[in-house]
Design a protein around this nucleic acid. Sequence first.
DNA 1: TATTGTTATACTCTATAACTATA
DNA 2: TATAGTTATAGAGTATAACAATA
Lengths: 143, 143
Amino acid sequence: MARTNDEARRAWQLLMRFFFRQRGQLPACGDQFGLSPVQCHVLHLLEPDDPMPMSRLAKTLSCDASNVTGLVDRLETRGLVERRPAAGDRRVRVLGLTPTGSRVRGELLRHVSGRPNPLTRLTPDERRALVRILERLLDEQDG
Amino acid sequence: MARTNDEARRAWQLLMRFFFRQRGQLPACGDQFGLSPVQCHVLHLLEPDDPMPMSRLAKTLSCDASNVTGLVDRLETRGLVERRPAAGDRRVRVLGLTPTGSRVRGELLRHVSGRPNPLTRLTPDERRALVRILERLLDEQDG
DNA sequence: TATTGTTATACTCTATAACTATA
DNA sequence: TATAGTTATAGAGTATAACAATA
């Protein structure tokens, strides 16, 4: 049990290190469009034809709802997203991509896919194992 | 090749999602000591009896050197780390843990190890696979 | 000339608390 | 009463540019 937690902590530490090390390459990705890492992530999360309420975005980002206001303000100023009224509950604002936002999102994904990143150096088996493990981690937390 | 990059992008997106989702539990960890997530990470990186130059910390965090100045200022104000002169090069400042910092670091690690986190729910095989993959990713970037 | 670290500046991210509108 | 979102505020993180000290 103690061993399990120690191993989990080790994995967590490695994840943190990997993340911070990768961070240096993230701005280069967003700089092209003048977007911060978080803004890129939001654009990635916001799939076309699948708008999401601001409260859901706050939950997905694990941050306070007040942050989402400013975050969306900045994305809206850039013309990438827009707030829309939600059907049925007039308190709710639903976030959708503008045509420009949809185009930039596509360019962003192509930009990421188009250049090799550290994950491409894993073997196919390793990549599949990593994806499967991450999917399990994300699934288990949904409940 | 295109397939490799798409899979790598998928893995990256999952990593991002996992990271943001986990973020909500990070502050609770640092709140106990009044530390931000980045400050916790620095404390984790700074092993006792293995001081590191500020420039190396900047490189490890993939951030500009000017950020490290403020980051270390705040940790120093809390009495957790201290700047020391480096032997041989008077430009260099080496970061070391104070006795308090060393103690807090220990408590932080015990705090993380002591409570179950999502990674503990992986099977032992999955955890080992994850650790191995992350170690490979980190090793390969050192060169 | 190049490197280490700092300062000044501006912007983004983040949490807390108080608030409005709606449910 | 409870929830969705905003505003105000404060602090932390981040990059850029200019700078001093040292190599």
